[in-house]
């Protein structure tokens, strides 16, 4: 995670340890989200009881409300991709602009989730209401927490770019953070399809 890694003798592996570390970390994160999604599907199949419950996926989930945030998040994947590309080409201003755009889009997504949740909670639907509430808020909540961490990481990269550039590791940090962001977006695509499209 630092330029000491250079002196710790990597020879046979061509992969940068920081990149390999992020790949392994994301693999373990997929196992985590995979479990939450499997649990959601398991509960969807057995126990959401649409006829008897007043709070069911069909009644609580609002596709038009969730769609704008989703589009923002997908868009942010594009901006972060080009930001990393600009950085590799040493176009600093373009990098900063696109990086900031990514952060903004992420915040807009979180804002969308917040509005959605506020409406639900006002309607008397929360994490302890029923099994659907437990499954929904846990899954979407953990995703939102990952988006939040992503925003913090993106901000850190921007804030530290002056210091880290001094040791030539800035590009690598920015790149792995962009991978993390892509991963979080990818997870949302799955969560969105499972929860809002397939599961309604």
């Amino acid at each position: 995670m630092n330029h000491a890694s250079d002196s710790l003798a990597h020879h046979e592996g061509n992969l940068d340890p920081v990149k390999a570390g992020m790949i392994t970390f994301l693999a373990s994160e997929s196992a985590f989200f995979g479990t939450l999604i499997m649990v959601y599907l398991f509960n969807l199949g057995t126990a959401f009881e649409p006829e008897r419950e007043p709070y069911t996926p069909g009644k609580m989930l609002d596709l038009p409300l969730a769609l704008p945030g989703t589009i923002c998040l997908l868009l942010s994947s594009v901006t972060v991709h080009y930001a990393a590309k600009m950085l590799a080409q040493k176009k600093d201003a373009a990098f900063r602009l696109l990086w900031l755009a990514t952060i903004t889009l992420g915040i807009v997504f979180l804002g969308g989730t917040a509005v959605e949740w506020r409406d639900m909670i006002h309607a008397g639907f929360n994490i302890s209401t029923n099994l659907f509430g437990s499954s929904y808020f846990t899954l979407v909540g953990f995703h939102a927490a990952h988006v939040t961490v992503g925003i913090i990481l993106l901000t850190l990269v921007l804030a530290l770019s002056r210091r880290t550039r001094a040791i030539h590791r800035h590009e690598v940090f920015a790149e792995v953070v962009s991978w993390y962001w892509h991963f979080v977006d990818g997870v949302w695509v799955v969560v969105f399809s499972v929860v809002y499209v397939f599961g309604r």
Partner: peptide, 13 residues
């Protein structure tokens, strides 16, 4: 585990 896996992948003599 992440550390060990990366060490084996990247730090071989």
């Amino acid at each position: 585990a992440i550390n060990l896996v990366v060490t084996v992948v990247c730090l071989r003599a």
